[in-house]
Design a protein around this nucleic acid. Structure first.
Length: 468
RNA sequence: CGGGGAGUGGCGCAGUCUGGUAGCGCACCCGGCUGGGGGCCGGGCGGUCGCAGGUUCAAAUCCUGUCUCCCCGACCA
Protein backbone atom coordinates (compact mmCIF):
# COMPACT_ATOMS: atom_id res chain seq x y z
CA UNK A 1 0.00 0.00 0.00
CA UNK A 2 1.31 3.44 -0.79
CA UNK A 3 2.30 4.91 2.55
CA UNK A 4 1.25 8.31 1.36
CA UNK A 5 -2.38 7.38 1.84
CA UNK A 6 -2.34 7.12 5.57
CA UNK A 7 -2.09 10.45 7.30
CA UNK A 8 0.83 9.54 9.50
CA UNK A 9 2.84 12.47 10.66
CA UNK A 10 6.06 11.20 9.15
CA UNK A 11 4.80 11.15 5.62
CA UNK A 12 2.71 14.23 5.28
CA UNK A 13 2.58 14.70 1.60
CA UNK A 14 2.60 18.15 0.14
CA UNK A 15 -1.01 17.94 -0.85
CA UNK A 16 -1.91 17.53 2.76
CA UNK A 17 -0.88 21.11 3.25
CA UNK A 18 -3.49 22.19 0.78
CA UNK A 19 -6.29 20.58 2.71
CA UNK A 20 -5.54 20.82 6.35
CA UNK A 21 -2.82 21.73 8.74
CA UNK A 22 -2.11 20.84 12.28
CA UNK A 23 -1.91 23.62 14.78
CA UNK A 24 0.72 22.92 17.35
CA UNK A 25 0.46 23.60 21.01
CA UNK A 26 2.33 26.81 21.51
CA UNK A 27 2.11 29.86 23.66
CA UNK A 28 -0.07 31.55 21.12
CA UNK A 29 -1.52 28.40 19.64
CA UNK A 30 -4.80 26.60 20.05
CA UNK A 31 -5.56 23.21 21.51
CA UNK A 32 -3.19 20.35 20.78
CA UNK A 33 -4.28 18.41 17.76
CA UNK A 34 -6.82 20.93 16.61
CA UNK A 35 -7.52 20.90 12.92
CA UNK A 36 -7.18 23.95 10.81
CA UNK A 37 -8.84 23.41 7.50
CA UNK A 38 -7.25 25.43 4.75
CA UNK A 39 -9.17 27.09 1.93
CA UNK A 40 -9.14 24.24 -0.59
CA UNK A 41 -9.98 21.68 2.07
CA UNK A 42 -12.63 23.90 3.51
CA UNK A 43 -14.25 24.40 0.14
CA UNK A 44 -14.49 20.63 -0.21
CA UNK A 45 -15.93 20.34 3.28
CA UNK A 46 -18.41 23.10 2.59
CA UNK A 47 -19.87 21.19 -0.33
CA UNK A 48 -20.01 17.97 1.67
CA UNK A 49 -21.60 19.79 4.57
CA UNK A 50 -24.27 21.25 2.29
CA UNK A 51 -24.98 17.83 0.81
CA UNK A 52 -25.44 16.31 4.26
CA UNK A 53 -27.46 19.26 5.51
CA UNK A 54 -29.87 18.92 2.58
CA UNK A 55 -30.46 15.29 3.41
CA UNK A 56 -30.95 16.04 7.10
CA UNK A 57 -33.55 18.67 6.34
CA UNK A 58 -35.34 16.26 4.04
CA UNK A 59 -36.08 14.11 7.10
CA UNK A 60 -37.87 17.07 8.65
CA UNK A 61 -35.12 18.15 11.02
CA UNK A 62 -34.26 21.82 11.56
CA UNK A 63 -31.00 23.46 12.49
CA UNK A 64 -30.34 25.22 15.78
CA UNK A 65 -27.38 26.22 17.90
CA UNK A 66 -26.76 25.38 21.54
CA UNK A 67 -24.24 26.73 24.05
CA UNK A 68 -20.58 25.80 23.90
CA UNK A 69 -20.17 25.53 27.67
CA UNK A 70 -22.10 22.97 29.63
CA UNK A 71 -22.46 23.02 33.43
CA UNK A 72 -20.57 20.03 34.73
CA UNK A 73 -23.61 18.86 36.66
CA UNK A 74 -25.49 18.30 33.39
CA UNK A 75 -22.96 15.72 32.33
CA UNK A 76 -23.35 13.85 35.57
CA UNK A 77 -27.05 13.32 35.18
CA UNK A 78 -26.71 10.33 32.88
CA UNK A 79 -24.43 7.81 34.56
CA UNK A 80 -23.04 5.96 31.53
CA UNK A 81 -22.72 9.14 29.55
CA UNK A 82 -20.55 10.90 32.12
CA UNK A 83 -18.49 7.79 32.64
CA UNK A 84 -17.83 7.55 28.93
CA UNK A 85 -16.79 11.15 28.49
CA UNK A 86 -15.14 12.22 31.74
CA UNK A 87 -11.58 11.37 30.76
CA UNK A 88 -11.66 13.50 27.65
CA UNK A 89 -13.33 16.66 28.91
CA UNK A 90 -11.86 20.13 28.74
CA UNK A 91 -13.06 21.94 31.83
CA UNK A 92 -13.38 25.69 32.31
CA UNK A 93 -12.70 26.63 35.90
CA UNK A 94 -12.31 30.39 35.63
CA UNK A 95 -14.48 33.12 34.21
CA UNK A 96 -14.57 36.86 34.57
CA UNK A 97 -11.36 36.76 36.53
CA UNK A 98 -12.83 34.57 39.25
CA UNK A 99 -12.91 30.89 40.05
CA UNK A 100 -16.26 29.54 38.97
CA UNK A 101 -18.51 28.08 41.63
CA UNK A 102 -19.29 25.26 39.27
CA UNK A 103 -16.91 24.32 36.48
CA UNK A 104 -18.24 24.24 32.95
CA UNK A 105 -17.13 21.73 30.36
CA UNK A 106 -16.52 22.53 26.73
CA UNK A 107 -19.06 20.33 24.95
CA UNK A 108 -17.70 16.97 23.83
CA UNK A 109 -21.19 16.37 22.40
CA UNK A 110 -24.39 18.15 23.28
CA UNK A 111 -26.91 15.57 24.52
CA UNK A 112 -27.03 17.08 27.96
CA UNK A 113 -27.39 20.74 27.07
CA UNK A 114 -29.86 19.98 24.29
CA UNK A 115 -31.97 17.81 26.51
CA UNK A 116 -32.10 20.36 29.25
CA UNK A 117 -33.84 22.53 26.66
CA UNK A 118 -35.98 19.70 25.36
CA UNK A 119 -37.37 19.24 28.86
CA UNK A 120 -38.76 22.77 28.70
CA UNK A 121 -39.86 22.65 25.09
CA UNK A 122 -41.79 19.40 25.22
CA UNK A 123 -45.02 18.98 27.11
CA UNK A 124 -47.48 17.42 24.71
CA UNK A 125 -47.52 14.67 22.09
CA UNK A 126 -48.26 17.57 19.75
CA UNK A 127 -44.68 18.78 20.30
CA UNK A 128 -43.37 15.49 18.92
CA UNK A 129 -41.41 14.47 17.10
CA UNK A 130 -38.89 17.19 17.84
CA UNK A 131 -36.07 16.96 15.30
CA UNK A 132 -33.09 19.24 15.89
CA UNK A 133 -29.66 19.36 14.29
CA UNK A 134 -26.67 21.57 14.92
CA UNK A 135 -23.37 22.12 13.14
CA UNK A 136 -20.82 22.81 15.82
CA UNK A 137 -17.26 22.25 16.86
CA UNK A 138 -16.70 20.09 19.92
CA UNK A 139 -13.68 19.25 22.04
CA UNK A 140 -12.53 15.86 23.23
CA UNK A 141 -9.16 15.78 24.93
CA UNK A 142 -7.99 12.58 23.29
CA UNK A 143 -4.92 10.86 24.61
CA UNK A 144 -3.50 10.62 21.16
CA UNK A 145 -4.87 12.83 18.41
CA UNK A 146 -4.57 11.60 14.89
CA UNK A 147 -4.70 13.94 11.97
CA UNK A 148 -7.99 14.03 10.14
CA UNK A 149 -9.22 11.05 12.10
CA UNK A 150 -9.16 12.11 15.70
CA UNK A 151 -8.36 15.69 16.47
CA UNK A 152 -8.97 17.25 19.85
CA UNK A 153 -11.33 19.76 18.35
CA UNK A 154 -13.49 18.89 15.41
CA UNK A 155 -16.39 20.22 13.44
CA UNK A 156 -19.42 18.01 13.11
CA UNK A 157 -23.11 17.82 12.82
CA UNK A 158 -25.03 16.42 15.75
CA UNK A 159 -28.71 15.63 15.60
CA UNK A 160 -30.96 15.23 18.60
CA UNK A 161 -34.52 14.06 18.41
CA UNK A 162 -37.42 13.16 20.68
CA UNK A 163 -40.26 10.84 19.72
CA UNK A 164 -43.45 9.54 21.27
CA UNK A 165 -42.66 5.87 20.81
CA UNK A 166 -39.70 3.53 20.70
CA UNK A 167 -40.72 2.38 17.24
CA UNK A 168 -40.64 5.92 15.88
CA UNK A 169 -37.25 6.62 17.37
CA UNK A 170 -35.98 3.34 15.97
CA UNK A 171 -37.11 4.01 12.44
CA UNK A 172 -35.83 7.58 12.53
CA UNK A 173 -32.38 6.48 13.70
CA UNK A 174 -32.25 4.04 10.80
CA UNK A 175 -33.50 6.62 8.35
CA UNK A 176 -30.61 8.89 9.30
CA UNK A 177 -28.17 6.04 8.93
CA UNK A 178 -29.44 5.04 5.52
CA UNK A 179 -31.01 8.02 3.77
CA UNK A 180 -28.69 10.65 5.15
CA UNK A 181 -25.34 9.12 6.03
CA UNK A 182 -24.92 6.07 3.81
CA UNK A 183 -26.47 7.95 0.93
CA UNK A 184 -24.18 10.97 1.24
CA UNK A 185 -21.12 8.78 1.68
CA UNK A 186 -21.93 6.74 -1.39
CA UNK A 187 -23.28 9.45 -3.66
CA UNK A 188 -21.12 12.39 -2.68
CA UNK A 189 -17.93 10.98 -1.21
CA UNK A 190 -18.02 7.93 -3.50
CA UNK A 191 -17.19 5.68 -0.56
CA UNK A 192 -19.17 2.48 0.00
CA UNK A 193 -19.93 1.77 3.66
CA UNK A 194 -21.10 -1.13 5.79
CA UNK A 195 -24.10 -0.29 7.93
CA UNK A 196 -24.55 -2.20 11.11
CA UNK A 197 -25.15 -2.33 14.80
CA UNK A 198 -22.49 -1.75 17.42
CA UNK A 199 -21.89 -4.39 20.06
CA UNK A 200 -22.64 -3.58 23.69
CA UNK A 201 -18.96 -2.96 24.24
CA UNK A 202 -18.66 -0.56 21.32
CA UNK A 203 -21.86 1.46 21.60
CA UNK A 204 -22.12 5.14 22.51
CA UNK A 205 -21.99 6.04 26.20
CA UNK A 206 -25.61 6.46 27.20
CA UNK A 207 -27.22 4.76 24.20
CA UNK A 208 -29.33 1.63 24.07
CA UNK A 209 -28.41 0.83 20.51
CA UNK A 210 -25.75 2.39 18.28
CA UNK A 211 -25.74 2.04 14.51
CA UNK A 212 -22.78 2.96 12.38
CA UNK A 213 -21.39 3.36 8.89
CA UNK A 214 -18.00 1.70 8.54
CA UNK A 215 -15.66 2.47 5.70
CA UNK A 216 -12.73 0.38 4.50
CA UNK A 217 -9.57 2.40 3.97
CA UNK A 218 -6.98 1.52 1.36
CA UNK A 219 -4.79 -0.17 3.90
CA UNK A 220 -7.63 -2.45 4.99
CA UNK A 221 -8.30 -0.69 8.25
CA UNK A 222 -11.78 0.40 9.27
CA UNK A 223 -12.96 3.92 9.85
CA UNK A 224 -16.20 4.66 11.64
CA UNK A 225 -17.62 7.32 9.42
CA UNK A 226 -20.91 8.06 11.08
CA UNK A 227 -23.12 6.93 13.95
CA UNK A 228 -26.80 7.00 14.78
CA UNK A 229 -27.90 6.16 18.31
CA UNK A 230 -31.13 5.05 19.87
CA UNK A 231 -30.98 6.56 23.32
CA UNK A 232 -34.13 4.88 24.60
CA UNK A 233 -35.46 6.86 27.54
CA UNK A 234 -32.13 7.22 29.30
CA UNK A 235 -31.72 10.94 28.81
CA UNK A 236 -35.47 11.55 29.03
CA UNK A 237 -35.43 10.16 32.54
CA UNK A 238 -32.24 11.98 33.49
CA UNK A 239 -33.55 15.32 32.26
CA UNK A 240 -37.25 14.84 32.91
CA UNK A 241 -38.41 15.07 29.32
CA UNK A 242 -42.06 14.04 29.56
CA UNK A 243 -45.14 14.64 27.51
CA UNK A 244 -48.87 14.17 27.91
CA UNK A 245 -49.92 11.51 25.45
CA UNK A 246 -53.20 11.26 23.58
CA UNK A 247 -54.60 9.06 26.31
CA UNK A 248 -53.77 11.62 29.01
CA UNK A 249 -50.84 9.64 30.36
CA UNK A 250 -47.54 11.35 31.16
CA UNK A 251 -44.69 9.53 29.40
CA UNK A 252 -40.96 9.93 28.81
CA UNK A 253 -39.88 10.59 25.24
CA UNK A 254 -37.81 8.19 23.16
CA UNK A 255 -34.72 9.76 21.70
CA UNK A 256 -32.02 9.51 19.08
CA UNK A 257 -28.76 11.30 18.45
CA UNK A 258 -26.46 11.05 15.46
CA UNK A 259 -23.40 12.68 13.97
CA UNK A 260 -20.78 12.85 11.29
CA UNK A 261 -17.65 14.96 11.41
CA UNK A 262 -14.75 16.37 9.46
CA UNK A 263 -13.36 12.86 9.83
CA UNK A 264 -15.13 12.30 6.54
CA UNK A 265 -12.41 14.36 4.89
CA UNK A 266 -9.91 11.89 6.32
CA UNK A 267 -11.90 9.07 4.78
CA UNK A 268 -11.90 10.79 1.42
CA UNK A 269 -8.14 11.10 1.54
CA UNK A 270 -7.49 7.57 2.73
CA UNK A 271 -9.87 5.95 0.29
CA UNK A 272 -9.35 7.97 -2.88
CA UNK A 273 -5.88 9.43 -2.50
CA UNK A 274 -3.07 7.95 -4.54
CA UNK A 275 0.63 8.54 -4.92
CA UNK A 276 -0.01 11.59 -7.10
CA UNK A 277 -2.01 13.18 -4.32
CA UNK A 278 -5.64 13.72 -3.56
CA UNK A 279 -8.50 12.71 -5.80
CA UNK A 280 -11.61 14.70 -5.04
CA UNK A 281 -14.97 13.31 -6.17
CA UNK A 282 -16.31 15.63 -8.88
CA UNK A 283 -19.44 16.44 -6.89
CA UNK A 284 -17.35 17.76 -4.03
CA UNK A 285 -14.59 19.39 -5.99
CA UNK A 286 -14.64 23.17 -5.53
CA UNK A 287 -13.09 23.44 -8.98
CA UNK A 288 -14.07 20.64 -11.32
CA UNK A 289 -12.11 21.73 -14.35
CA UNK A 290 -8.92 23.70 -14.50
CA UNK A 291 -8.25 25.24 -17.88
CA UNK A 292 -4.52 25.46 -18.21
CA UNK A 293 -2.99 27.67 -20.83
CA UNK A 294 0.30 26.14 -21.89
CA UNK A 295 1.86 29.15 -23.51
CA UNK A 296 1.10 32.76 -24.03
CA UNK A 297 -0.51 33.84 -27.21
CA UNK A 298 -3.31 36.09 -28.32
CA UNK A 299 -5.66 33.31 -29.25
CA UNK A 300 -4.92 31.08 -26.31
CA UNK A 301 -6.17 33.26 -23.49
CA UNK A 302 -9.27 34.11 -25.44
CA UNK A 303 -9.99 30.49 -26.24
CA UNK A 304 -9.56 29.60 -22.58
CA UNK A 305 -12.02 32.24 -21.52
CA UNK A 306 -14.56 31.07 -24.07
CA UNK A 307 -14.19 27.51 -22.90
CA UNK A 308 -14.68 28.48 -19.26
CA UNK A 309 -17.79 30.45 -20.16
CA UNK A 310 -19.15 27.46 -22.06
CA UNK A 311 -18.41 25.18 -19.13
CA UNK A 312 -20.12 27.51 -16.68
CA UNK A 313 -23.12 27.57 -18.94
CA UNK A 314 -23.52 23.80 -18.65
CA UNK A 315 -23.16 23.96 -14.87
CA UNK A 316 -19.49 23.02 -14.52
CA UNK A 317 -17.26 24.76 -12.01
CA UNK A 318 -14.27 25.78 -14.13
CA UNK A 319 -11.29 28.01 -13.38
CA UNK A 320 -8.40 29.26 -15.51
CA UNK A 321 -4.75 28.70 -14.77
CA UNK A 322 -2.82 31.21 -16.83
CA UNK A 323 0.12 31.67 -14.47
CA UNK A 324 2.68 31.69 -17.23
CA UNK A 325 5.44 32.77 -14.89
CA UNK A 326 5.34 29.35 -13.27
CA UNK A 327 6.65 26.33 -15.14
CA UNK A 328 4.12 24.11 -16.78
CA UNK A 329 5.13 21.02 -14.86
CA UNK A 330 4.75 22.82 -11.58
CA UNK A 331 1.30 24.02 -12.43
CA UNK A 332 0.16 20.58 -13.53
CA UNK A 333 1.45 18.99 -10.38
CA UNK A 334 -0.28 21.61 -8.25
CA UNK A 335 -3.65 20.62 -9.60
CA UNK A 336 -2.93 16.93 -9.43
CA UNK A 337 -1.95 17.21 -5.79
CA UNK A 338 -5.18 18.95 -4.97
CA UNK A 339 -7.20 16.42 -6.88
CA UNK A 340 -8.95 18.69 -9.35
CA UNK A 341 -10.94 16.15 -11.41
CA UNK A 342 -10.28 17.49 -14.91
CA UNK A 343 -7.53 19.50 -16.49
CA UNK A 344 -7.89 20.91 -19.96
CA UNK A 345 -4.66 22.03 -21.59
CA UNK A 346 -4.77 24.73 -24.20
CA UNK A 347 -1.86 26.05 -26.21
CA UNK A 348 -1.03 27.29 -29.69
CA UNK A 349 -0.47 23.71 -30.80
CA UNK A 350 -3.95 22.57 -29.76
CA UNK A 351 -5.58 25.71 -30.94
CA UNK A 352 -4.14 25.31 -34.42
CA UNK A 353 -5.82 21.92 -34.68
CA UNK A 354 -9.03 23.03 -32.97
CA UNK A 355 -8.28 20.63 -30.15
CA UNK A 356 -7.61 20.44 -26.44
CA UNK A 357 -5.94 17.91 -24.18
CA UNK A 358 -8.16 16.55 -21.42
CA UNK A 359 -6.49 14.96 -18.42
CA UNK A 360 -8.67 12.98 -16.04
CA UNK A 361 -7.43 12.76 -12.48
CA UNK A 362 -9.60 9.80 -11.47
CA UNK A 363 -8.16 7.41 -14.02
CA UNK A 364 -4.95 9.36 -14.56
CA UNK A 365 -5.49 9.46 -18.30
CA UNK A 366 -4.91 12.02 -21.00
CA UNK A 367 -6.78 12.29 -24.28
CA UNK A 368 -7.16 14.79 -27.09
CA UNK A 369 -10.61 16.18 -27.81
CA UNK A 370 -12.03 18.47 -30.43
CA UNK A 371 -12.50 21.86 -28.83
CA UNK A 372 -15.87 22.28 -30.48
CA UNK A 373 -18.52 20.60 -28.37
CA UNK A 374 -16.09 19.71 -25.58
CA UNK A 375 -17.86 21.76 -22.93
CA UNK A 376 -21.09 19.88 -23.50
CA UNK A 377 -19.34 16.56 -22.90
CA UNK A 378 -17.72 17.58 -19.65
CA UNK A 379 -20.76 17.09 -17.37
CA UNK A 380 -21.00 13.50 -18.57
CA UNK A 381 -17.31 12.93 -18.07
CA UNK A 382 -17.57 14.26 -14.54
CA UNK A 383 -20.51 11.95 -13.82
CA UNK A 384 -18.54 9.06 -15.22
CA UNK A 385 -15.57 9.87 -13.02
CA UNK A 386 -17.76 10.21 -9.95
CA UNK A 387 -19.14 6.75 -10.68
CA UNK A 388 -15.74 5.31 -11.44
CA UNK A 389 -14.36 6.55 -8.14
CA UNK A 390 -17.13 4.71 -6.32
CA UNK A 391 -16.49 1.59 -8.38
CA UNK A 392 -12.80 1.70 -7.60
CA UNK A 393 -13.49 2.16 -3.90
CA UNK A 394 -16.01 -0.68 -3.94
CA UNK A 395 -13.59 -3.02 -5.67
CA UNK A 396 -10.92 -2.01 -3.20
CA UNK A 397 -13.25 -2.78 -0.32
CA UNK A 398 -14.43 -6.10 -1.70
CA UNK A 399 -10.87 -7.27 -2.08
CA UNK A 400 -10.38 -6.64 1.62
CA UNK A 401 -13.36 -8.54 2.98
CA UNK A 402 -13.21 -12.28 3.65
CA UNK A 403 -15.54 -14.75 5.26
CA UNK A 404 -14.54 -16.82 8.24
CA UNK A 405 -16.28 -19.54 10.18
CA UNK A 406 -14.36 -19.35 13.41
CA UNK A 407 -13.13 -16.57 15.64
CA UNK A 408 -9.54 -17.75 15.25
CA UNK A 409 -9.70 -17.51 11.46
CA UNK A 410 -11.49 -14.19 11.68
CA UNK A 411 -8.80 -12.67 13.87
CA UNK A 412 -6.16 -13.89 11.46
CA UNK A 413 -7.95 -12.28 8.53
CA UNK A 414 -8.72 -9.06 10.34
CA UNK A 415 -5.08 -8.26 10.91
CA UNK A 416 -5.00 -7.22 7.29
CA UNK A 417 -8.57 -6.49 6.27
CA UNK A 418 -12.16 -7.24 7.18
CA UNK A 419 -13.43 -10.60 8.42
CA UNK A 420 -17.08 -11.48 8.21
CA UNK A 421 -17.88 -14.19 10.73
CA UNK A 422 -21.06 -15.61 12.28
CA UNK A 423 -21.46 -13.71 15.53
CA UNK A 424 -22.83 -16.71 17.37
CA UNK A 425 -19.68 -18.67 16.53
CA UNK A 426 -17.53 -16.14 18.36
CA UNK A 427 -18.94 -16.88 21.79
CA UNK A 428 -18.53 -15.00 25.06
CA UNK A 429 -15.27 -13.23 25.70
CA UNK A 430 -14.66 -12.89 21.97
CA UNK A 431 -14.15 -9.15 22.09
CA UNK A 432 -11.45 -9.46 24.75
CA UNK A 433 -9.60 -11.93 22.59
CA UNK A 434 -9.80 -9.62 19.60
CA UNK A 435 -8.63 -6.67 21.64
CA UNK A 436 -5.45 -8.58 22.40
CA UNK A 437 -4.80 -8.70 18.67
CA UNK A 438 -5.69 -5.05 18.06
CA UNK A 439 -8.97 -5.98 16.42
CA UNK A 440 -12.54 -5.03 17.18
CA UNK A 441 -16.06 -5.74 16.02
CA UNK A 442 -16.82 -2.84 13.73
CA UNK A 443 -20.49 -3.71 13.51
CA UNK A 444 -23.02 -6.51 13.41
CA UNK A 445 -24.87 -7.13 10.18
CA UNK A 446 -27.29 -9.69 8.83
CA UNK A 447 -26.78 -11.87 5.81
CA UNK A 448 -30.02 -10.58 4.34
CA UNK A 449 -28.94 -6.98 4.81
CA UNK A 450 -31.71 -6.10 7.26
CA UNK A 451 -30.92 -4.23 10.46
CA UNK A 452 -29.94 -6.40 13.42
CA UNK A 453 -32.87 -6.47 15.88
CA UNK A 454 -31.47 -9.27 17.94
CA UNK A 455 -27.70 -9.75 18.13
CA UNK A 456 -28.31 -13.33 19.24
CA UNK A 457 -30.04 -14.27 16.01
CA UNK A 458 -28.39 -16.99 13.91
CA UNK A 459 -28.29 -14.80 10.80
CA UNK A 460 -26.13 -12.17 12.51
CA UNK A 461 -22.56 -11.74 11.36
CA UNK A 462 -19.79 -9.67 12.87
CA UNK A 463 -17.44 -7.54 10.80
CA UNK A 464 -14.02 -7.61 12.37
CA UNK A 465 -11.14 -5.32 11.54
CA UNK A 466 -8.43 -3.12 12.86
CA UNK A 467 -9.77 0.39 13.23
CA UNK A 468 -8.51 3.93 13.16
C1' C B 1 1.29 5.96 32.24
C1' G B 2 4.40 2.03 29.44
C1' G B 3 7.83 1.22 25.09
C1' G B 4 10.86 3.49 21.18
C1' G B 5 13.08 7.81 18.63
C1' A B 6 14.57 12.93 17.68
C1' G B 7 16.34 18.07 18.97
C1' U B 8 22.06 21.04 13.90
C1' G B 9 20.30 28.02 8.98
C1' G B 10 13.05 29.21 7.33
C1' C B 11 11.80 23.61 6.11
C1' G B 12 13.84 18.49 5.59
C1' C B 13 18.28 16.09 6.97
C1' A B 14 23.83 14.25 7.23
C1' G B 15 27.83 14.73 10.55
C1' U B 16 28.09 12.08 16.82
C1' C B 17 30.29 5.50 17.16
C1' U B 18 36.36 7.09 16.17
C1' G B 19 36.74 15.03 19.46
C1' G B 20 40.40 18.73 15.22
C1' U B 21 38.00 24.90 9.99
C1' A B 22 29.72 23.02 10.68
C1' G B 23 27.89 20.44 5.67
C1' C B 24 23.85 18.86 1.95
C1' G B 25 18.84 19.30 -0.41
C1' C B 26 14.64 22.61 -0.67
C1' A B 27 13.29 27.66 -0.04
C1' C B 28 15.20 32.76 -0.47
C1' C B 29 18.41 36.87 -3.12
C1' C B 30 21.47 38.33 -7.76
C1' G B 31 22.88 37.34 -13.05
C1' G B 32 22.12 34.63 -17.41
C1' C B 33 19.77 30.83 -20.22
C1' U B 34 15.27 28.11 -20.83
C1' G B 35 9.87 27.74 -21.17
C1' G B 36 4.37 21.63 -23.68
C1' G B 37 5.31 17.43 -16.85
C1' G B 38 7.91 19.52 -10.09
C1' G B 39 13.61 23.93 -15.20
C1' C B 40 19.28 24.63 -16.07
C1' C B 41 24.17 27.07 -15.10
C1' G B 42 26.95 30.44 -12.13
C1' G B 43 27.22 33.49 -7.79
C1' G B 44 25.25 34.73 -2.85
C1' C B 45 22.54 35.52 2.19
C1' G B 46 21.61 32.59 6.36
C1' G B 47 23.31 28.26 11.98
C1' U B 48 26.90 30.56 19.53
C1' C B 49 24.46 22.36 16.76
C1' G B 50 17.48 22.39 22.63
C1' C B 51 19.34 24.26 27.59
C1' A B 52 22.89 24.07 31.93
C1' G B 53 27.23 22.22 33.85
C1' G B 54 31.68 19.11 33.36
C1' U B 55 36.18 16.58 30.86
C1' U B 56 39.91 18.38 27.20
C1' C B 57 44.98 22.25 24.14
C1' A B 58 40.30 21.57 21.42
C1' A B 59 33.29 19.43 22.08
C1' A B 60 27.60 19.20 17.41
C1' U B 61 30.71 14.81 18.79
C1' C B 62 32.62 12.31 25.33
C1' C B 63 30.22 12.62 30.65
C1' U B 64 26.20 14.45 34.11
C1' G B 65 21.72 16.88 34.62
C1' U B 66 17.47 19.10 32.45
C1' C B 67 13.62 20.68 28.93
C1' U B 68 10.83 19.86 24.58
C1' C B 69 8.83 17.34 20.49
C1' C B 70 7.53 12.98 17.59
C1' C B 71 6.17 7.74 16.94
C1' C B 72 3.85 2.91 18.95
C1' G B 73 0.17 1.24 22.93
C1' A B 74 -4.03 2.22 26.46
C1' C B 75 -9.05 6.26 25.66
C1' C B 76 -12.18 7.53 21.09
C1' A B 77 -16.62 10.86 15.92
Amino acid sequence: MPPVLTPQAQDFPRWYQEVISKARLAENGPVRGTMVIRPWGYAIWERLEAAIDRRIKATGARNAYFPLLIPEAFLRREAEHVEGFSPELAVVTHGGGKTLEEPAVVRPTSETIVNSSFARWISSYRDLPLLINQWANVVRWELRPRLFIRTSEFLWQEGHTAHATRAEAHSYALKILEAVYADAMTEELAIPVFRGRKTEAEKFAGAEISWSCEGVMRDGKALQMGTSHELGQNFARAFGIRFSDRDGQLRHVWQTSWGVSTRLLGAMIMVHGDDQGLRVPPRLAPTQVIVLTARAGEGVLKAAKTLIDDLSRVGVRAEPDDRLDISLGRRIVDHELRGVPLRIELGPRELAGGQAVLARRVRNSKETFALRGLAEQVPHILDEDQRELLEQATALRDRRVWRAETLTDAIEIATDGFARVPWRACGPGAEDRMAGAGISVRCLVREDGKPVDDPGDDAVEALLARAY
